[in-house]
Amino acid sequence: MWRFIGVRLLQAIPVILVVITVTFFLVRIAPGGPFDSEKAVPREVKAALEAQYKLNLPLFQQYAAYLDDLAHGDLGPSFKYPGRSVNELIAAGFPVTAELGLYALLVALGIGGLAGVCASLKPNTAQDYIPMSLAMIGICMPSFLLGPLLVLLFGIYLDWLPVSGWGDIPGDKILPSITLGAGYAAYIARLGRAGMLEVLSQDYIRTARAKGLPRWQVVFKHSLRGGLIPVVAFLGPAFAGLLAGSFVVETIFQIPGLGRFYVQAAFNRDYTMILGTTVFLSVLIVLFNLLSDILAAWMNPRLRAQFGGH
């Protein structure tokens, strides 16, 4: 088990290095620089600006300097926000995005898991078709449509919930969490249904039923764990996706999260911010994929035996 984790972490280092290198050069190749603005500035001023951020050095020297700073945990100063470091911006944005992602994941698991299990219990009946059709709509409906619809209904017509913000007004976290979680709930419903159907057709379930166990016991005690393995395997990428993909929801609800910083940084050509966020998110994605593999292994006795053997 430890060896498995160690190997995976070692494998991650070259991956992240490649990500850094590619990003570093790509952002510099993109037309337009961080200090291009609508009002042209004198050449001398622009040169002074670039010198303040070492952009006057040869590209490879900049790259080496960046790696050196990175090795010391310093992601550099933001170009767009003078006086702020990238570390500081990430520290401000990440907890918000993580909290949003976590709530969205809970929403997704709650709604999706329930719908998937219900559907699998009576396949090809209304109890299957209705949640599965809803799930299909959920997958197809983008958050930039669902978000405003929910806001219109709950925020404006019913006036039950705040229309934007995060942690400013009680209840303002509900709509964004649902909006972000909905698409994933749909995936989880379909994955859960498929997984449960497979388990429910296994011999040991038939045996359990034949023994006369109550139905809830068959479902919750014997089937659920096996049936939800595909869901758990999906959780790692899903959470990483929630973190990296929360931009749209953060924009709709004006949430001060990392996703918004990230996309703004790309528009602003804020080189250090783009790089810093990319590095940070790649590390997270690697970690979450690993975590979900470990969790899936723990839930699946066959895989667990494999690890135990090593």
Binding site: V151, G155, P162, V163, S164, G165, T251, I252, F253, R260
Partner: peptide, 14 residues
């Protein structure tokens, strides 16, 4: 930043 959200905030008295 989002002018559509801003208008909604105005409508609900934020």
């Amino acid at each position: 930043e989002n002018v559509v959200s801003e208008e909604r905030m105005f409508r609900v008295g934020q």
